[in-house]
């Protein structure tokens, strides 16, 4: 039941997380996926190429990241290295600011709920004492 809602949270934040990873240094697909799984597989869900690649393509199309092909040292093939563009850097910092405001707002609602519950239990105890 909760799975569906949790999925929505993850979907919304994955782009920003990818931008954060790419912002730190130039990186490639496999490294991004291993890093995601090392840090947050149990919370974010197990990252797979099938999920991550399409997001990378879209971020690239949106002009937030760019890639360059460089020969891979270990094998004869090529590796695609991703880096943030100037626009990507700006977007990420705007996203980060919004995320702080957003989580503070959401947390405010959750805090109200906890306050109410606490107030109820205090009132309940007071009632018991009177009786």
């Amino acid at each position: 039941m909760t799975e569906k809602y949790v999925q929505q949270f993850k979907k919304g934040s994955l782009e920003m997380i990818l931008l954060c990873l790419i912002a730190r240094r130039e990186t490639y697909g496999y490294e991004i996926i291993s890093e995601l799984n090392r840090r947050g597989a149990d919370i974010l869900g197990y990252a797979r190429e099938g999920t991550i690649y399409p997001i990378l393509y879209r971020l690239q199309e949106a002009g937030l990241i760019r890639c360059r092909l460089a020969p891979a040292t270990a094998n004869g093939g090529q590796k695609k290295y991703y880096a943030l563009t100037e626009q990507g850097r700006e977007t990420l910092s705007e996203m980060a600011v919004f995320w702080q405001v957003y989580t503070a707002c959401v947390n405010g609602f959750l805090a109200d709920l906890e306050d109410d519950a606490a107030a109820r239990s205090v009132a309940g105890e007071a009632g018991e004492e009177e009786a």
Binding site: Y28, G29, Y30, E31, S34, Y46, R48, E49, G50, Y53, A72, A74, N75, G77, Q78, K79, K80
Partner: peptide
């Protein structure tokens, strides 16, 4: 298709077997 090839190559570079990659890819 190019990126898929790279996924296998990078995984091999990090000591992952093809089967492990396929398990992840589905």
């Amino acid at each position: 298709l190019r990126d898929l090839e790279e996924a296998f190559a990078s995984a091999a570079e990090h000591g992952e077997s093809e089967q492990q990659v396929i398990d992840r890819l589905g």
